[in-house]
Design a protein around this nucleic acid. Sequence first.
DNA 1: AGGTACATGTAAGCTGTTACATGATTTT
DNA 2: AAAATCATGTAACAGCTTACATGTACCT
Lengths: 178, 178
Amino acid sequence: MDVKTLCLGLLSRGDYSGYEIRKQFEEGAFSHFQDAGFGSIYPALKRLTEEGLATCSAQAQESRPDKKVYRITPRGREALFEAVNEPPAPDKLRSDFMFVLYFADLVPPRQLDRLIAGRIAHHEEVIARLEAIDLSRRTSEEAFVIRYGIALHRAARDYFETHRHELVGDSIRSGATA
Amino acid sequence: MDVKTLCLGLLSRGDYSGYEIRKQFEEGAFSHFQDAGFGSIYPALKRLTEEGLATCSAQAQESRPDKKVYRITPRGREALFEAVNEPPAPDKLRSDFMFVLYFADLVPPRQLDRLIAGRIAHHEEVIARLEAIDLSRRTSEEAFVIRYGIALHRAARDYFETHRHELVGDSIRSGATA
DNA sequence: AGGTACATGTAAGCTGTTACATGATTTT
DNA sequence: AAAATCATGTAACAGCTTACATGTACCT
């Protein structure tokens, strides 16, 4: 799924500027399974407009660049319909963190401990962010996906809390603290 | 983490050919958090050799191309050490499947039901594959990562089994089957 | 005085994917 | 007879990331 389709999806639920779209990728309901930065969002919105899948209206603002608000067109909705009815490509996960853990014997115990603490904190953050979303204002599909995110991040957090001692516990207790 | 470093990691646990490395990405302990195809593995191994991080010995085989077996060098081990002691980049997950679910109202209920059934089956497959790994032959770090994979895929499977009715249950029961 | 949030965009570069090229052996 | 497995590699392409370019307003 390219960034173009991702943007189209967001626009199907409301009118947004590129800046707002990026914020949704960063903080919104999508944030736990998709990502995109300015460098891919702006060109994507441009192409969406060129292809007639969205329209753009520039809103003049004082002492700021024009805010360009995009709106999905009927043809854009068709394109989104077709995209979600295609068999989805397999998930792609790339976790440098897990790679590091796989070779955790090469990492000093202290650093490893900090790393895992940071990971747990990160999961807590994501959980808090997703829990803060008011589900009563969302479609049941959206709520399903958001709750999935919460469930998965909780599972990850719980795993680390329960098993972290298997990685760092012993090394910390023996001489490493000297 | 680029494919070069990923290959270096695998080579730190044994000598392998490009073909075998790909199999490990596909089926091995890594498979649930990293991925790479031939098109990136072969060039990566070539560069590893050029940079003196691995050596390559071609083993002649009858009626097959030479099998090129790579072995990590001491400098390769140093490079791996440095890589895993760098702060890891944040995880990157791209899930077209979750995107589709987010807009599941656009998908016919039957198709949605099949999609979710397939997803559950996929999680079962990954769980079975990871459970088949003999942990007694692995380092505790590797076992930790493998068990993490099992835990996460179980959580995902359980979520779908418990909540799938929220997405498709009602639509299936009402007129859609006509 | 400095950092963050608002606001958009381009260009170069890096990386990875897909398709192509080749060919024998083993399994179904 | 077809499909999968073994086995390596290149070239073109697509896509995303990073850095650059610009500037105001508000908060600390």
